[in-house]
Design a protein around this nucleic acid. Structure first.
Lengths: 252, 252
DNA sequence: TCAATTTTGTTATTTTTATAACATCTGTTG
DNA sequence: CAACAGATGTTATAAAAATAACAAAATTGA
């Protein structure tokens, strides 16, 4: 029987090895299987077997362990916790949003690990303007030539890979937003939609206030969860996107 | 005798191959030497020999060609022209600036291909706040844990990898800047210090106005060059850093 | 055009990496 | 504690990659 996982304490030896390896590879770019084996004090064969079970993180280039392409892209912005949880559900929720988009529109895209999927899913021939404040989102937008990027600046906050304005912010006044795609750390019937910090909440509220159309994008794992900073009620949204698809928000 | 280089026309066959390879590798993450040989219709041996002469761009990982670590970092922000020109001079000019820095100070760091070297040269144990508006600078700052990052946001401009404010900007008002490290496309005695766009010039002027100490960082290749947008006279600076070291700016 | 130089290709050889098969160890469960 | 499953190590073998040495071709400059 597997032990329940304590945070930060890898459940198995293998996971501990993978964690340490990832760290090393991120720092050095690559490590040779021979050195990895020595570093972890196991045989090369074990390293090879470990690799086989983490193809989404590592790739194997002739004896050298390298970060996989996707891992490379997001390495600098790897968000503090649970980046890879519920990937499929998050992606499905984003996919449900795509039909809402029309060419030439302007989108506000919230921070977190859900909405990068939306950027990824935007068709390559649809020209859009993306307003965001998270570095991981901006980084994805930069790589798609059909998207114009607007990044709201400020002081960088590593745990969310986001920028928060130093003073109360009027930057958004210059833009007209068609759709605001919002993410959340928690969604709860009576306490509303919540995130972890009050600064973030303020920015989210500003964005929602300036948008024609507000869409909450959250997979089912967020429902029933409460976080300290509340930024909206469910009825403030026009639509809610989950892995089950797009639904109208409940009236208050 | 080598032909003079025409822009965009690689002088030698080898350079043409390297260019195409770089492009392919950037897109796909890696390419196997076998496929590269087929793609370019030369032997594997030739590919190997090419690689040996471009170790700063490529690394060879057991039969696979991969971007070198530095090349990986700057790939998405590779600036339109001449990123790798005068690297040594640029770095030397930045090195001359390091002694000016004191712990806990706040720096404004301009865009371009010169000042990334400054970020790189900051000692790892010196805590500083970096204010910038270029994505390539921000990306380097994020990777150094001793530096706090402030990014001035706005609309992204790919050729300079920078953000420019949508309206005239008050964002900088919130910060006190100890040193403003400025780069330039041209420096000329009577016409002053110039850059390519007027938007950029405006931002530079704002930053200089709010700084205690203004340092122009420019290698000798910039002197005598003139660009459309003038943002300062030489006498507006406190110091000028070139590959020859740090000098006081001339009085007007 | 011709000789000199550089670039490229080929082959043989050595070294390194990958895989498979089996042996050994470790920890868990009843 | 014995039996089992899972993880790890070892060895042998196959496959792939790196290198060196030399041959052939292409370029260059007189």
């Amino acid at each position: 029987m597997r032990q329940p996982e304590h945070r930060g304490t890898p459940a198995t030896r293998k996971e501990a090895r993978l964690l340490l390896l990832k760290d090393t590879v991120e720092r050095n770019g690559s490590i040779h299987i021979r050195d990895a084996a020595e570093l972890l004090d196991v045989s090369e064969m074990t390293i090879r077997r470990d690799m086989r079970e983490a193809p989404e993180t590592f790739q194997f280039l002739g004896g050298h362990i390298v970060l996989s392409q996707e891992a490379q892209r997001r390495a600098p912005y790897e968000l503090a916790q649970a980046a890879e949880l519920n990937e499929a559900a998050k992606r499905a929720a984003c996919a449900a949003c795509v039909p809402l988009l029309m060419p030439e529109e302007t989108l506000f895209v919230d921070c977190g690990t859900t909405l990068p999927h939306l950027i990824d899913l935007i068709p390559d021939d649809m020209e859009l303007t993306i307003i965001c404040y998270a570095l991981n989102i901006a980084d994805m937008v930069v790589r798609k030539p059909n998207l114009q990027l607007v990044l709201l600046g400020g002081v960088y906050h590593a745990p969310t890979a986001s920028f928060y304005p130093a003073q109360d912010d009027a930057t958004l006044d210059a833009y007209a937003i068609n759709h605001a795609f919002m993410s959340a750390a928690g969604v709860e019937e009576s306490l509303g939609v919540t995130c972890t910090t009050f600064r973030e909440a303020g920015l989210k509220q500003t964005a929602m206030a300036r948008a024609q159309n507000r869409i909450l994008v959250a997979d089912q794992s967020k429902f029933g969860v409460v976080n300290p900073a509340s930024f909206a009620r469910l009825s403030d949204f026009d639509r809610i996107a989950t892995e089950a698809g797009l639904q109208p928000a409940p009236a208050d």
